[in-house]
Amino acid sequence: MATGELRFERQHLLGIEGLEAREIEYLLDLADGFVELNRQSEKKLQLLRGRTLVNLFFEPSTRTQTSFELAGKRLGADVVNMAVARSSVVKGETLIDTAMTLNAMHPDLLVVRHHESGAVALLARHVRCAVVNAGDGAHEHPTQALLDALTIRRRKGRIAGLTVAICGDILHSRVARSNILLLRTMGARVRVVAPPTLLPAAVESLGVEAVTDMRRGLEDADIVMMLRLQSERMQGSLVPSVREYFHFFGLTHDKLRAARPDAMIMHPGPMNRGVEIDGPVADDINRSAILDQVEMGVAVRMAVLDALTRRLRANR
């Protein structure tokens, strides 16, 4: 990869909020290159040789953590996974304590997931290395939005002008927030589709249209983005039951007929088949981009790690 000029001059990637379209384009262009590299048999680069990446996950996530781990290793970094159980945090070590401990270990990159909104930004204020937000509470999950954008751009050739329907638990979803921000910045139209109990207050203030009828929400959509409904939210407090949710909001081939014939289906995973998505739809290789998303995930994370360390490498 050519070193090139520094076009992403941020110290951290804490969210999509505040990123300009050119910065997003830059990261996506960079990631495109890594997609090709990842398909070769020799995948390892030396860009981050001697650098240490720490995966710090306060909330378990095999997929995201593995994706970052692969990304770091393919760029030549030493990758350490620190799983921090919620319980040990409750026992008294605060996030700031953790930051201090990490500083003493001199990592170059810190990838953090935390169950509280804003926690990753708080940590970033107290560490000396670059921080990547791998998901904070119901706030943001920027690399997910970037990998979704890359998947869309590669399949559809563009993002601007597309109609994207994001369906499901918008209220608790950091994936939805980051995607809304990114898609709006890149000029897409965004609809959110959910029962009123799963829509945040004043959701229109995010620049989206809110729809509670799935078929209407999917009308003319180029992209159908499904969100995972956590099992603890299906038991009557937010939606009456799984089967009622599936009846109204589960993605089936029948409901999908409202969307454009070439509409692409996405899901950040892991899927709940029979809850938010019907098995046959998820497995429809002509429509579903779900496995592409996983592949793009590694490439996008490589791009982010590369971009955040360019200045570091330039100063070497």
């Binding site: 706030h139 927030r177 207050a201 004043a202 959701v203």
Partner: peptide, 15 residues
């Protein structure tokens, strides 16, 4: 407070 700021920050709101 429940409203646009809470929605953007991903914080649970009090109506």
């Amino acid at each position: 407070n429940e409203g646009p700021v809470a929605t953007r920050l991903g914080l649970p709101g009090i109506p």
